[in-house]
């Protein structure tokens, strides 16, 4: 669905934001894009949708060159940015104006998603809504467009606690084998039961890109006693509840993936983990 080959991007001549990056995204998956601030996560989303152009390398988004911004491609992409656009119109008018641009838009789905988010009055003005409420409208609209590619930049920022759960349920029900969702986030705990593939960026390149099943096959996540020493430990974090560890899964036992721990492990021991997944 998305094929990025050796892409380099920079906003200025002095500093490269993305360096020789390659990435493939398959349909039917929810990809979590993780990385520290300033690594280029949002820029990657922009490159995929054609909002910025690569300095070198090629990007193929559903068979299109994104920088051409052809309508056939744009009608199959919905990008939810972290900061939302300023629009002076009601939710109903937003639907009336923008839905016709998306041939697979479902008004029924949109209404259901809004209802699930407890937004009942579609005559409310978008510019009068709080950031969280506005985000709910855009999430609902994005899911209802039924585009093949959904790009979300920090989608749970600004959502209240119940809404985060609703968001997870909605996304899980909306994704099928034909759709691909790429979520850039720092709120890993909001999404840990949702994403099924993890992409980690470090030093302006992708250092880790694996499906969850592969991660839990090769890594074992556990809480151990501080006195226990294990040679298979790749990374550990001392917390009040004990020693959180990421170990090499030598026995093939199942464990619950802790995305935050994995992220820290990858950043600390990149080489070792990359070798393990080769």
């Amino acid at each position: 669905m998305v094929n990025i080959q050796n892409v380099t991007f920079s906003y200025s001549k002095k500093t490269e934001l993305l360096s020789n990056m390659s990435l493939q995204l398959e349909p039917g998956r929810i990809h979590g894009l993780l990385g520290k601030n300033g690594e280029g996560k949002s820029t990657l989303l922009k490159l995929i949708s054609g909002l910025v152009f690569p300095t070198s390398g090629t990007i193929d988004t559903m068979g299109f060159v994104p920088e051409k911004r052809f309508p056939e491609m744009l009608q199959e992409i919905y990008f939810l940015p972290e900061e939302l656009p300023l629009l002076t119109m009601s939710i109903q008018n937003y639907e009336n104006v923008y839905a016709p641009f998306y041939p697979k838009f479902s008004a029924e789905q949109f209404n259901n998603y809004l209802k699930e988010f407890d937004i009942t009055d579609k005559h409310q003005m978008l510019n009068k809504l709080s950031h969280g409420q506005k985000k709910k409208v855009f999430v609902a609209f994005g899911l209802a467009t039924n585009t093949k590619l959904l790009l979300m930049d920090e989608p749970t920022n600004g959502l209240d606690i119940p809404s985060k759960g609703q968001f997870r349920r909605m996304v899980a029900s909306a994704i099928d084998d034909t759709r691909c969702l790429l979520i850039s986030t720092h709120q890993v705990h909001d999404l840990d039961s949702l994403i099924d593939s993890i992409i980690i960026m470090e030093k302006h390149r992708i250092v880790f890109n694996q499906p969850i099943e592969e991660i839990t096959k090769k890594l074992y996540f556990c809480i151990s006693d501080r006195n226990e020493k294990d040679n298979a430990v790749i990374y550990s974090e001392d917390t009040l509840r004990g020693l959180y560890q990421v170990c090499e899964n030598k026995t093939g036992d199942d464990s619950k993936l802790d995305i935050e721990l994995l992220f820290n492990a990858v950043l600390t021991n990149t080489k070792q983990i990359v070798e393990l997944f080769k």
């Binding site: 922009k46 052809f70 309508p71 744009l74 900061e83 656009p85 300023l86 923008y98």
Partner: peptide, 14 residues
């Protein structure tokens, strides 16, 4: 405003 600009450029029209 960048988010509004992004929204405009992503409207499916040439």
């Amino acid at each position: 405003y960048t988010p509004t600009g992004m929204h405009f450029l992503l409207i499916p029209a040439t």
